[in-house]
Computed example of a mutant assay.
Amino acid sequence: MTTMTFTRKDPPQWLLDFWKEIDDKTFGKGFDCFAHDAVCNLGVADWHGRDAIRENLRQFIDRGFTAHHDVVEYWDGGSLKVFHGKVRMTFDDPALPVVRPAMAHFFYMDEKDPAKVRRWLGSVGPIEF
């Protein structure tokens, strides 16, 4: 069994920069928070490598909506960071309503470089639009 203590904190700049890259659809330096060979399991996604994470998120976001991520809470456990938030999804099709699903994300930090994310596990609702 492993025991870990978490402290609720303000979200770190690397996390805010990462979400901003997605919200602004720029997909630039905010992705530098990931190790070069990071793994992302976002829903059913299984993406390997920082560049693959960046490109796959770009393709997903460019499918007809704009996102805006809001922090609800951020918990720091040292090698594991937990993020809970809401994402406002505004669709290009004005007939579709804006949705605000909840998100939960686990960021496992790299053992050799604790400033980098080694693995990202995330879940975002809704289950349908």
Rank of each mutant, 00 (worst) to 15 (best):
E128M: 12
F65K: 05
W75M: 08
M4R: 14
T7K: 04
L96M: 13
L57S: 09
P94G: 07
V44F: 03
A52S: 02
G78T: 06
T90L: 05
F34W: 12
G125Y: 00
H68K: 07
G43F: 10
K25S: 08
V99G: 00
V71Y: 03
P97F: 00
A35N: 04
G125V: 06
N56A: 06
D24T: 10
G125D: 02
T90S: 13
A104W: 00
D51R: 07
G85W: 08
G85M: 00
A38D: 05
I127Q: 00
F60R: 04
V72P: 01
Y74G: 00
K20Q: 12
W120P: 15
F65A: 11
A45G: 06
V44K: 02
R100P: 11
I127L: 14
F83Q: 03
V98G: 14
G43C: 02
A38N: 11
H36R: 07
H105E: 15
F31V: 13
V98N: 10
F31L: 04
V117A: 03
M4I: 07
R54F: 03
L96N: 06
D32S: 07
V117S: 10
K29I: 15
A115Y: 09
G85Y: 00
F91D: 05
T90G: 01
D46G: 04
K20E: 08
D113S: 12
G30E: 05
A67D: 01
L42H: 06
R119W: 05
F34I: 14
H84R: 07
Y108V: 01
A45D: 11
G49T: 04
Y108A: 06
I53W: 01
I127A: 05
V39K: 09
P97D: 13
V72Y: 01
D17V: 10
A104I: 00
H69C: 00
V99L: 09
G49I: 03
W19A: 14
I22L: 14
E21Q: 03
W47C: 03
Q59E: 11
L16H: 10
F18Y: 15
T5R: 08
H36F: 09
I53L: 08
T7R: 09
F34A: 11
W19G: 02
I22P: 08
K20L: 15
F129A: 05
E111F: 02
D92R: 08
A35K: 10
M109H: 06
T26M: 05
V82G: 00
D76S: 09
A102C: 02
D24K: 00
D51M: 08
W120L: 12
P12S: 05
G30R: 13
F31S: 01
E111S: 12
R63E: 14
T90Q: 09
A102S: 10
V44M: 14
P126D: 03
D93E: 06
D51C: 02
F18A: 07
P126N: 04
K81G: 11
F83C: 06
D62Q: 14
K112R: 07
R50C: 10
E21K: 01
R100L: 10
V124L: 09
G49M: 12
F107G: 03
F6M: 15
A38H: 13
H84M: 10
F91Y: 15
D113K: 09
L57Q: 10
W14P: 00
M109F: 09
F83L: 01
V72E: 02
D110I: 05
A45L: 06
W19V: 02
G77A: 06
